[in-house]
Nucleic acid binder design. Structure first.
Length: 857
RNA sequence: GGGCGCGUAGCUCAGUUGGCUAGAGCGCUGCCCUUACAAGGCAGAUGUCGUGGGUUCGAGUCCCUCCGCGCCCACCA
């Protein structure tokens, strides 16, 4: 315990308590507790690729409020922190920051140091994969340090001894083990298939990372030679003409029915392609007959697969057209030299450049009707990419999805807060196409524990993997040899070749519940914490993180990974756009917000965001929390300055009334928190607290000082003590610093380890238990009526432009008999607080107070 | 095209199963240095609860239509 300061202040509280909590292990997880005593939280590992913004503070604070509530309810809270530091986002960040680019063909350079300053227009320096991974590691370590500082400053009650990195050994072991087990059950498999491909990052991307963007394009009407004359095709991608493998129209389309089963000749390249029917062809689009290319979009893939068409791929992984020798098998042409001449003009060009040239060639040859007609249409992009995705064929690892009914059943089994977020999950499951491609042609990630045999001719058989054993994990196939081989056989005929890719970052983070609970490395901890209680996350990654996590747990444990999913909203800027640093009216950085408004102030603001609701950033709102914290300091100083206690008897009706109302508040806040509705809990508590200060404190102030004798003073002081302890408890999840400070003035231990306030105990203190005689139940209305009358008196003084200290010679209260009876119970306090000499009553319909002020001196 | 959410004071938002004259904070106006609090307190003004219907004794709250905004999903030639 410490003394109450003369002039309470928020200054220095954060540093003081942050240090104290760390020293005393206030939030340390007690791992002797068993599963039923534990509340475990699958904290979202923030992507360590930039800076945290106010939106992060917003949602992580909300989770912390739930954690603190559960801890006070007596659950042992398992609240770890993860860092998502693998994956493309980190690589991108590192490339920008260090001005480098990974070139896996280069050898490791132990002396390499990135340039001190990097300018945007500098050409990236190619470096080896080990060098690049090293740089990534250094950059994320630095960022993680600053993230840790921020989270500590915000007051997250995380147990920092339980933290993990998605690129850390425990994550790699879990990812690789999960992967091997799926392969063993044939739930993960190797496949060579068309894949959505980002040509800038040169990697495959998964369906979940796609984004449609309205993009300018143009229809080009191109002439094919059909059996009975020209066939006109509308296309937005004329550059894929050499990749055309068929023409397709709807089976019911009478215009084209005569052509089905025949062939047409492509312009410029003279390829005879079949004319086929498929119901996906839209008669109302373009000319109603389309060219199928390998591959222009995902519909092409469907047609190609379902119609068993040939393959003529031209777009390479770098987005440029690959060299082709016309006349060779697969590239037969009725005029190979002409095809070659046309193609040589576009080979090596990007899709965009090739399109321009093809259009010129078509126009010169009179094979295009009219000018291109500009349109805008949705085109698939990688969500972080800048150029449209291409589709290329490559070797990939894929995970099969469970059948939709099973996934939907898991979605129903999970408790969603708010409930309507379940729909997003169901939408996604119902729209799934194909399997989950978990392969990324990147460098800083979890490697596949796999190698491929190299035959005597030096050809790698990418479809016959050699897998590592579970015991050998973690494995890096690029530095370790597979079982039965030695490293000098690497990339040699008759030897082996390492899997060159890494896992999709979601393939790792979908195991976050297993990683943080010690699935691989700490079975005892796993036993005590899994399946988890809560997954807090934002709604934008339901289709990725949440969905994938459910799938992995379904496969691995035949169970949900957690019982509850609390979905948070976004912070929007004042223009209702998702918050972004670049916006002109972007708010301050989290650090600046914390400096300006204090952690408690920022957390207060975060707590006002309803679960699942987006909230506009409004600087004015941030001030309120700070004000509330200061008010709490001052009100506490007042109550404790009167030697308030929690041990005495509460006898006065007004005091009992206040405690009864407080008991109702506790019950309501508890119910709200149990539904993960911290916002409602705070709103109710705050509302009570302000009227507690404005009305109750004013009403009992004089009596508490002893103006009405010892018994009345003791009752007030006990009520004040009980109320203060209760309010500190109710506010503790939101305002951890200021509540802890006040708690330390008069209580032992930490408020954050104290029991959550009990409505029953308060009712008992208010004399609401069985011992209360009939008709003597404490009634919250006593305080309400007294406060209303006091308010009328204040109003009269205010309207008379007089000080609140002004004496009232006489006040007449008119109201219903019932309410007048309630007023009688608190009349002495009302007279004292209002400085009323004579307080009389008369019957009436509604509350009216006639006030006679003593004349101005 | 399908779905979800939202539309309440100038601004940001509460209004839990339909129930007394619709609330809070910010902002605005006025007053007050009252021994918890002047980087504060007290008091006050402000709303056809998006539109039009319906159910009901009674609807911001339930049902239907429409309008606007945001987001999710969708095979995008």
């Amino acid at each position: 315990m410490s003394t109450i300061p003369d002039k309470p202040s928020l200054d220095g509280l954060e540093a003081k308590w942050r240090q104290r909590w760390a020293d005393e292990g206030t939030y340390r997880f007690d791992r002797t507790k068993t599963r039923d005593q534990v509340f475990s939280i699958d904290t979202p590992p923030p992507t360590v690729s930039g800076t945290l913004h106010p939106g992060h503070v917003f949602s992580y604070s909300q989770t912390d409020m739930i954690a603190r509530y559960q801890r006070m309810r007596g659950r042992e809270v398992f609240y770890p922190m993860g860092w998502d530091d693998n994956g493309l986002n980190v690589e991108r960040r590192v490339q920008l920051l260090t001005g480098t680019r990974c070139d896996p063909s280069l050898p490791y350079d132990p002396d390499f140091r990135p340039p001190e300053t990097v300018r945007k227009k500098d050409k990236p320096i190619p470096i080896s994969r080990p060098n690049f991974v090293e740089l990534c590691g250094a950059v994320v370590e630095q960022l993680e340090e600053s993230y840790f500082d921020l989270w500590s400053n915000v007051g997250l009650s995380v147990d920092w001894s339980h933290s993990y990195r998605t690129i850390g050994p425990e994550s790699i072991r879990a990812s690789q083990r999960g992967f091997l087990r799926l392969v063993a059950r044939d739930l993960a498999y190797r496949s060579e298939a068309p894949t959505l491909w980002d040509v800038d990052f040169r990697t495959a991307v998964a369906q979940a990372e796609l984004q449609d963007r309205e993009t300018p394009g143009a229809y080009h009407k191109i002439r094919f030679e059909g059996p009975d004359g020209p066939v006109w095709i509308d296309t937005t991608r004329p550059e894929l003409l050499p990749a055309c493998v068929a023409l397709v129209a709807h089976p019911d389309d009478e215009r084209y029915q005569p052509l089905f089963g025949q062939t047409a000749r492509t312009p410029l390249f003279g390829v005879q392609v079949p004319i086929v029917a498929h119901e996906l062809a839209a008669p109302d689009k373009g000319t109603g007959i389309a060219m199928i290319c390998t591959f222009g979009d995902t519909t092409d893939v469907v047609w190609w697969r379902e119609l068993g068409l040939g393959l003529r791929a031209v777009v390479q992984r770098d987005g440029r057209l690959r060299p082709v020798t016309w006349g060779e098998p697969g590239w037969e042409s009725t005029d190979a030299p002409a095809a070659q001449a046309a193609y040589d003009d576009i080979a090596g060009k990007t899709a965009k450049q090739a399109q321009a040239r093809i259009v010129e060639l078509l126009a010169e040859a009179g094979l295009m009707e009219g000018e291109p007609r500009p349109i805008t249409h949705p085109v698939k992009f990688w969500e972080n990419g800048t150029r449209p995705l291409e589709i290329v064929t490559s070797n990939q690892w894929l995970i099969r999805y469970p059948d939709k009914d099973a996934m939907l059943a898991r979605g129903k089994e999970l408790s969603w807060w708010p409930d309507f977020m379940r729909v997003r999950y169901e939408n996604w499951v119902n729209g799934l196409q194909g399997d989950w491609n978990i392969t990324r042609q990147r460098f800083f990630g979890v490697p596949f524990p796999a190698w491929y045999p190299v035959d005597a001719d030096g050809n790698v058989d990418y479809l016959s993997p050699i897998l590592a054993s579970e015991e050998s994990l973690p494995v890096d196939p690029t530095t370790q040899a597979p079982p039965g081989f030695t490293d000098d056989q690497r990339d040699q005929p008759g030897g082996f070749s390492a899997d060159p890719d890494v896992m999709d970052t979601w393939a790792t983070s979908s195991l976050s519940p297993q990683i943080c609970t010690g699935w691989v490395d700490d079975p005892d901890l796993f036993e005590r914490t899994f399946p988890m209680d809560l997954r807090p996350q934002a709604h934008d990654i339901i289709r990725t993180w949440l969905f994938y996590t459910v799938v992995r747990s379904h496969y691995e444990h035949e169970a949900l990974p957690w019982a509850n999913a609390a979905i948070s909203g976004f912070i929007l800027d004042p223009d209702r756009k998702k918050l972004s640093k670049s916006a002109a009216n972007a708010p301050d950085s989290p650090d600046e917000l914390l400096a300006k408004f204090g952690a408690d102030g920022v957390r207060y603001w975060a707590a006002n965001g309803r679960p699942g609701m987006d909230v506009a950033f409004e600087p004015g709102q941030l001030k309120i929390g700070r004000k509330l914290a200061i008010k709490l300091l001052n009100a506490s100083k007042f109550a404790l300055g009167l030697e308030s206690t929690t041990a005495g008897q509460v006898t006065e009706p007004l005091d009992r009334s206040m405690l009864a109302a407080l008991a109702d508040l506790v019950a309501e806040a508890t119910g709200a928190f149990d539904r993960f509705d911290y916002a409602r809990a705070l709103e109710r508590t705050e509302s009570f607290f302000w009227s507690f200060c404005d009305d109750y404190l004013e009403l009992v102030k004089n009596r508490a000082y002893g103006a009405a004798g010892d018994e009345g003073a003791a009752s007030a002081r006990t009520a004040l003590g009980l109320a203060l302890r209760t309010l500190l408890g109710l506010f503790a999840p939101f305002l951890p610093f200021v509540t802890e400070e006040v708690w330390s003035w008069w209580q032992e231990g930490s408020v954050h380890r104290s029991p959550w306030p009990s409505a029953d105990a308060l009712r008992e203190a208010a004399g609401a238990d069985d011992s209360a005689s009939p008709g003597d139940e404490p009634d919250p209305e006593v305080l309400a009526v007294a406060a209303a009358v006091l308010g009328e008196v204040r109003k009269a003084k205010s309207e008379a432009k007089r000080s609140m200290r002004t004496e009232v010679s006489a006040a007449v209260v008119a109201d219903t008999p019932d309410r007048l009876a309630l007023l009688a119970l608190g009349a002495d306090d009302v007279r004292s607080a209002g400085r009323i000499d004579a307080l009389t009553t008369e019957p009436g319909d509604t509350l009216t107070v006639t006030v006679d002020l003593v004349p101005e001196a």
